[in-house]
Simulated assay, not measured.
Amino acid sequence: MVKHRIYSVSVASVYPHYVAKAEKKGRTKAEVDEIMCWLTGHSARSLHDALEKGTSFEDFFAQAPAMNPSRSLITGTVCGVRVEAIEEPTMREIRYLDKLVDELAKGKAMEKILRR
């Protein structure tokens, strides 16, 4: 099976786009970081380190300290694809992150975004 090219893209190269999307809608970089830490179990420091190292999406999720078990509650569509229907695990994790950032940009309360 050929891997999708997004797997080799560095998270750091996409991160500014997540932040810009959130800030354009009045949200903050800190909220994007909180979402990423909630999803992956990273601390603020380890998230920063992963971004600094240029970690690929594949490695970012494979090496995540503790993927949040509540991420399976994330449902809906990203780019017309239902995230809960994505079978490939790494692609599902990437789409979970995309969906959370979308929810943030749409003004959803952080408590609901983080499935609390």
Rank of each mutant, 00 (worst) to 15 (best):
R116P: 11
K3H: 12
L114P: 13
E58G: 01
V19N: 03
E31D: 06
L100E: 08
E103D: 15
T55C: 03
M110F: 07
S72H: 14
E87K: 15
L47C: 06
K25L: 03
V101A: 01
A64C: 03
K24P: 00
K3I: 10
H42A: 04
S56Y: 02
E93V: 00
R95H: 13
I113N: 11
E52M: 12
D49Q: 09
P16F: 06
L39G: 10
K25W: 00
A20D: 10
E111G: 03
R5A: 07
M91D: 06
L39A: 14
K99W: 08
G26D: 08
E52W: 09
S70E: 13
K106H: 14
K25R: 13
I113Q: 07
R45I: 09
H17E: 08
S56N: 05
P89F: 03
S10V: 00
Y18C: 01
H4K: 14
E84L: 07
A62W: 05
Q63E: 13
R82G: 05
P16M: 02
E84S: 13
C79Y: 12
E111T: 07
V11K: 04
V19L: 02
V101Y: 02
C37P: 04
V78W: 08
G54F: 00
D59G: 02
R95M: 15
A20K: 12
R116Y: 10
V78L: 12
L100N: 06
D49P: 00
V83C: 06
T28P: 07
Y96Q: 11
M1D: 05
R5Y: 13
D102G: 08
V83F: 04
P69N: 04
T28V: 07
R92H: 15
H17M: 07
P69D: 09
R116M: 11
A109N: 08
L73F: 11
F57G: 06
V32L: 07
S46M: 02
P16G: 09
V83H: 03
A66T: 00
L104T: 00
M67Y: 00
A109S: 11
E34R: 15
